[in-house]
Design a protein around this nucleic acid. Structure first.
Length: 210
DNA sequence: ATTGAGATTTACT
DNA sequence: GTAAATCTCAATG
């Protein structure tokens, strides 16, 4: 890959400024945005906000660790973590520096490099190539190597797009302990939005409640 | 369409 | 040890 020309300062300033707001305000701005890496570009269709040290659903809730250190840094960088023993998930760090917030990138539509994305995910139909947080990182070839990447300088690039027409919100996916906040945001009626089941009930014998 | 098991790191009780 | 910001495969309605 060739070196890209330095981004113009207006673009960089604008992006950093937009991302330094609270994550639940940044999240809808990310919808329709373009994320590029490894020859593939994805148009973001679904994100989730995780807010600062006060959010029990956030990886930053219990303080800084080796894994989540990037969330404590400046906005506009990528936080990539490894989970369930096999998957990577990516967040855009947002909020003011020192306040660990981020937006989990849950799904997108591949708009460039679709052949590469198909090679990385041979069993997926095109709609499913980046439909889900771990699928999205696989399609874009993002790993812990890219943890901390500056989104204004590549190799991982983010460009905000036109605001999308309709945005829907709902509870976040996969959390069990956290109070529900309607901090999942997606492009209304977009077919590439993930449709994952909610978090499983407790282990056999017990039930989560009525 | 929906269900359940399995894969196996990181962080915490 | 257990649960987690998950996904794939196989079996089933």
């Amino acid at each position: 890959m060739r070196a890209l020309p330095a981004p113009t300062s207006t673009v960089v300033t604008e992006l950093a400024e937009l991302l330094s707001g609270p994550p639940e305000q940044v999240a809808p701005l990310l919808l329709g945005g373009l994320l590029s890496h490894g020859g593939v570009t994805v148009r973001l269709t679904e994100v989730e906000a995780y807010a600062g040290p006060a959010d029990p659903g956030s990886h930053a809730y219990r303080g800084r660790t080796d894994r989540n250190a990037v969330m404590f840094g400046p906005a506009g960088h990528l936080y990539v973590y490894f989970t369930y023993g096999m998957h990577f998930c990516a967040n855009v760090v947002c909020g003011p520096e020192g306040e660990p917030s981020g937006c989990l990138l849950r799904a997108g539509e591949v708009v460039a490099g679709i052949d590469l994305a198909r090679e990385r995910r041979p069993r997926s139909g095109d709609r499913d190539l980046a439909r889900g947080p771990a699928r999205l990182t696989r399609a874009l070839d993002l790993t812990r190597e890219h943890d901390g990447a500056d989104l204004t300088r590549g190799p991982v690039r983010l460009e905000l797009g036109e605001p999308v027409d309709r945005v829907s919100t709902g509870p976040r996916v996969g959390l069990r302990g956290a109070p529900e906040r309607p901090w999942r945001f997606w492009v209304t009626d977009d077919p590439t939005v993930s449709v994952y089941r909610p978090a499983k009930a407790l282990p056999s014998g017990r039930r989560a409640g009525p």
